[in-house]
Design a protein around this nucleic acid. Structure first.
Lengths: 197, 197
DNA sequence: AGTTTGGGCCTAGAGCCCCTAGGAAAGCAA
DNA sequence: TTGCTTTCCTAGGGGCTCTAGGCCCAAACT
């Protein structure tokens, strides 16, 4: 019997492709094995199981998305960087819906594997770097990063879930949202220390 | 054989409870049947299948969340209303993680059932109403509504996925995010018509 | 009261999925 | 060539979804 030449990485990539085509929760060991021309039991030599596979897809997606964003924002600053960052994020989610969904799941993964994953960490660093130009200091910086990530993620998630029923094009709302976030970052409200409302 | 007295509504509620306890994707027909003291095949009298059950849970959650928000914002205006709205949203997500996840799935449901679901529609109306005080006009109003919903949803989604690794408490970031959104709504940037950047 | 009818719940079973155990053969090293 | 490692295989257990068909309870009708 000729060998299929599989490896954990190849299995993960095939899983990611399948996820983008049919949706992450339709990705099944059997179906993936079928696509790879192999019996399903054979996959377990490369991947610990379905849960592990999903974790690997999530890590792959995080890395890819981070690289996209890094390339898009490289050499830019201010609003340019903000728009490039946000568009790279959204475009990745549109192009790879299955991979993107994988990034939303609480990551419970092999620690040795997680150590190799530079994606998530670098993504956060990139966001901080992008905000450097707005002159925010901690803890406002962290708050701003979280606000941006929430908005970006929330927008594409709602968009994917069909949450924008109004006839106005999401693209318009997206551009306006970026305008709004930019002006917000420029006029970040001072924190009222001691106010516990 | 004594009857269990099931109905579509009771099955849905039990499914929602199960989802909150073990996670939406762990909700299975068999497990739900077990909890209800019934054979799994018996559930199909009340619910078309797993997909249908999830849709019903999503609708239930949307209704409940809408009611929560309506109660919280009733009689409030301006920033008071914004904060009450957002907190009600987030608290519902915290208290009912399984139900909340259900609302994120693209709704593909029995049209007759969807017609009975006033939740989603009213939620949007509530959001528009809350923004009335900020003096925005269409299409800015729709854009602002989408921005708010994106941020609220994105924040709780990232929070649930363990996306906030920094040691700063999410609660602090949340409060600051609401501050920021409030000032943003007060200084909503004018749209530059004809600008196609 | 007896009978009919509708519907809730059942058993049986097909088909798919995840995963483990153990065997065979391909590729690599000595 | 011989032996070792690793990939892939077959076999099989157990869980899940969903359909088909039957039984029996309860309300409605005569």
């Amino acid at each position: 019997m000729a060998r299929a030449g599989l490896t954990a990485e190849r299995v993960t990539i095939a899983g990611a492709e399948l996820a983008d085509e049919v949706g992450l929760d339709q990705v099944t060991m059997s179906q993936l094995a079928r696509r790879l021309g192999v019996r399903d039991a054979s996959l377990y030599t490369h991947v610990r199981g379905l849960e592990d596979l999903r974790g690997r897809i999530a890590l792959l997606a995080a890395d890819e998305k981070t690289i996209r964003i890094a390339e898009a924002t490289s050499g830019r600053a201010g609003k340019d960087a903000l728009v490039a960052f946000a568009n790279a994020w959204r475009e990745y989610a549109h192009e790879h819906p299955g991979r993107y969904t994988a990034t939303q799941t609480p990551i419970q993964i092999d620690p040795e594997l997680a150590a190799k994953a530079t994606g998530p960490r670098r993504a956060v660093e990139l966001t901080y770097g992008m905000l450097r130009g707005y002159g925010l200091a901690e803890p406002d910086l962290t708050d701003a990063v979280r606000l941006l990530r929430s908005t970006f993620h929330g927008f594409v998630a709602l968009e994917a879930a069909g949450g924008f029923a109004n006839e106005r094009s999401p693209q318009h709302s997206w551009i306006r949202a970026l305008d709004a976030l930019h002006t917000l970052l420029e006029h970040w409200p001072p924190s009222r220390e001691g106010d516990s409302s």
